[in-house]
Amino acid sequence: MDAAVAMRKEAAPASGLKQVFQNAQRAFDLIKKHRTPPDPKTYAIWYAYVEAADPRVIERVDSAIAEHGTLTPFDISSIFRELLTEEPAVVSARHSIGMAIEKEIDEVMKIIQQGVQNSDEFGASLDKANSALPGAASAEHLASLVSTLMEDNHRMARTARELNQGLTDSQNQIAKLNQELEEVQTQCRRDPLTSVANRRAFDERLEREIRAAAETGENLCLAMADIDHFKSVNDTYGHQVGDAVLQQFASVVTQNIKGQDMVARYGGEEFAIILPETDLFSAYNLLVKIKYTFKNTETPVEGTLKSIKDVTASFGLVRFEPGMTPRDMIERADHYLYEAKNSGRDRVKAKGF
């Protein structure tokens, strides 16, 4: 029986190792099949894809393959950055803040232990005085006992004030560190160029909003937006101007949505807008306003006195219906976005509109 158990224990790692090799081979096969660069980032993506531990990776890869037939350099970079790793600065900041919080918690524990020790010492002093009082031989002896008690009491009060101040200081420091940690967490969910939410934050938020809408029956709309002829903007004016156009669009959307709404950079020149508690008609009118405002906004050309205008965007809009998954909503909104593109661009498309 013991031998059988030992054999199973040895077989488990071997089986796991075999699976690793199989996943690795499948990852290399997919690199070859889709002609993606055989570099570490691409391998990491394909390995995560075949391992199937994170459904977001599968969804992103499938979506990119369906759209482009392969993983473009941008797809590889964005998937790896958003789903498989974090910026070194973010990791370093989180580690530093975590270490500082741990240090402050250690200080709090020391203060608490010191308080317990002082309380025990004062208790022992009271017990000793209580035992000695009945046998006090003279007024001088009694006065000495009272004086000792008063000194211990003053020392205890002084120590208690110092410990309370130490606790207050540590609590304030921990609160400050927690705030810094929240800021770091926020940064890792923001697109560095446009300062709006990134794909990771969008995925998490859409899932929550769909779950809430399914439970409450509240309205929920999702829009996918794409800047028209963006490649032409980059080719004509350069990538710096293209970046400025992306920032301009993100700013226009941010200024027109409500606090509960979210705009995220979905990838490249494509953005996603989550509109909770918003019916289809209101969402459609909002997107028309955003579309019009963006079209009439001028973007300066850096290093010149010129600016470009009449850059437009197209929008696909969908309303949540019971049973829909995040992928369903995205695909439906993308469908209407493609309709808007095929109908001449610079327009909003939705069911019934």
Rank of each mutant, 00 (worst) to 15 (best):
E151W: 03
A24H: 11
H154N: 10
A124Y: 07
P322N: 14
S63C: 12
E339M: 14
E140N: 01
E140K: 02
T85S: 15
T297E: 00
N219M: 06
S147Y: 05
D127R: 13
S147T: 13
Q173F: 05
E82V: 14
N178Q: 04
E51V: 13
G344I: 04
M156P: 01
R200G: 01
A132M: 12
K176R: 15
H34W: 06
K258I: 02
K351R: 11
F281V: 12
E215K: 15
I65V: 15
T312G: 10
Q240G: 08
R56H: 11
E59T: 15
A264I: 02
K309Q: 11
V20R: 04
K306C: 10
T194K: 13
A27W: 05
G344W: 09
Q240A: 05
Q22A: 13
I290R: 07
E277Q: 13
A137C: 02
A3Y: 12
T186G: 03
F230P: 08
S138C: 02
L133I: 15
S232V: 02
A350G: 09
A44T: 08
I97C: 05
K351P: 03
L30M: 14
D120F: 04
E87L: 03
E182F: 03
F271S: 08
F21L: 15
V91P: 00
A313F: 04
I174Q: 07
S144E: 14
M224L: 08
V90W: 00
K349P: 00
G238D: 03
A214F: 02
F122Q: 09
R158Y: 06
S251A: 12
E331K: 10
Q114Y: 01
R26Q: 01
I330P: 00
Q185W: 05
N234P: 09
K231V: 11
Q173P: 02
D152N: 15
Q117N: 07
A139I: 03
T72K: 03
Q247K: 14
D106I: 07
L133Y: 12
E59I: 09
K18P: 00
K33M: 07
V252D: 07
P134N: 11
S144Q: 13
S232E: 03
K9I: 04
R60W: 12
L193S: 01
S77N: 10
A313C: 14
P37T: 12
I65Y: 06
T293K: 11
D2C: 08
F28D: 05
S170Q: 01
I227F: 12
A197Y: 04
H239G: 01
G69I: 03
E182R: 06
